[in-house]
Design a protein around this nucleic acid. Sequence first.
DNA 1: CTAATATCAGGACAACTGATATAT
DNA 2: CATATATCAGTTTTCCTGATATTA
Lengths: 147, 147
Amino acid sequence: MTEQEERDDAAQALATEIRRIGGRLKRRLREISGVGDMPGSQIAVLLHLESEGQATISDLARAEGMRPQSMGAIIAALEAAGHVQGRPDPADGRRTLLSLTERCAAWMQAGRIARQDMLAGAIAARLSPEEQTQLGAALPLLARLVE
Amino acid sequence: MTEQEERDDAAQALATEIRRIGGRLKRRLREISGVGDMPGSQIAVLLHLESEGQATISDLARAEGMRPQSMGAIIAALEAAGHVQGRPDPADGRRTLLSLTERCAAWMQAGRIARQDMLAGAIAARLSPEEQTQLGAALPLLARLVE
DNA sequence: CTAATATCAGGACAACTGATATAT
DNA sequence: CATATATCAGTTTTCCTGATATTA
């Protein structure tokens, strides 16, 4: 076996494992990544808005790697639930600036998301601090594969 | 901030990153994990059958972490395409033992999957050998979160 | 005029749940 | 009778593509 073939085999083995775990991840992330009834996609948006203050639908779509139409549906659900609100951008009439409602911001600051975050709970319960560090370092590598 | 709170914060930050990358992964894995027209879920089954020889639908469903009904649909597609074949288990009338067809086994041995595997290609192209090792070591940690 | 934002409408996909027939 | 395998049928979720109005 040539060195090139060995490298290909290594990549192939890794691909197989990613497929297997990725498949599971895809299915389970829906259940474990939510907070109560709220899906992980909505949580991600709230956390983004909490740290950034405000953003447009297109901003959020880019940040999460999806289409504006898809993000629009997520935002519509969050608006209907009274968690985010939009106001027109005074500087650009095309844009709608989204931000957390006061009630939602207070709810998040009270740490209720953190305490109910099943994914964070699973991480804390099942991974040692060292393992968490190891996983955190590897995530950007995974991100590079899907960008 | 107590040590406990610091640990919780670390887990929360990791959870946020997994949500973001996991979301992307979920969406992009469909495109990049396939081999040509074949979806990643089918590839995973073929690789499993290649290494194990034969298996039932329920075996495969358990291995991939999904329901037998869902695996049934994947198998039906592979059978229709002539890639796998089933025969009744002589020892247990409930079971159907699935295996690769000769033609599919030959196709896989010829390395055509490996050369057309976009995910393996992305890994080889975008990650150094060291990074591949690092990612490989972290995948079991991710698996532990979703089991 | 071209590009970006947002939204409407319809569609595809991959998993799910529930129910059923058969065999152990 | 309780359990396991396989399959039929219908539903849900999530994101997709295409088309359109508006504004920069």
